[in-house]
Amino acid sequence: MLLSVNNVTKSYAEGAQRTEILRGVDLSLEAGQAIALTGESGSGKSTLLHLCAGLDQPDSGQISIQGQQIAGLKDSARAALRRSRIGLVFQQFNLIPSLKVADNIAFQARLAGRWQADWAAHLAQTLGLEAHLQKYPEQLSGGQQQRVAIGRALAARPALILADEPTGNLDEDASDKVLALLLELVRDTGAGLLMVTHSQRLAARLGAQQHLSSGVVA
């Protein structure tokens, strides 16, 4: 099992009150599998994704990646896990503005010590970024920036890709292209993909769907 989520709960304090976001979520993802996580706004999709990435900790329940529990890990161990096994793609791209495109793509892979020039070149070519490698992110369009973000997520050949509405900022045509690329690369690398999306149309293109409603998987 690549990703296993068992009975995970999460709530946030808002003043004196606590708001429950996740109320016992179960989810599993195999290597090579792609799952779309859908749900209404505020249903807890992004929160679940952040918990899976080790960016935040659940109140209760267990999350494991390739059999390793992440709940008990220290901050540095969770950082190492993200570096080496997880690729993250955000809606707003979250590229590093001070680095050029080539350096953005290489950044995580080099942090993890897994950078391969051939693979990086292949990614740049596949993503159609060859002509833009020496540019800064701000000089690219939204679609191009999202392709850079996908390149960064895949450069370290992560086991798990977590994508939080990666096409939320793109028009339909650009969304289709980016998703096609993402799925193609996931297939090539054998990674698992968990993608949060609002779009039923895009969700239908992934192998499986999980719908989150009121903090539980429906």
């Binding site: 540095s76 950082a79 979250n94 590093i96 995580q108 942090l111």
Partner: peptide, 9 residues
């Protein structure tokens, strides 16, 4: 935040 997300503590 993105640098933290990709693996720096």
């Amino acid at each position: 935040a993105p640098v933290w997300a990709v693996g720096l503590t």
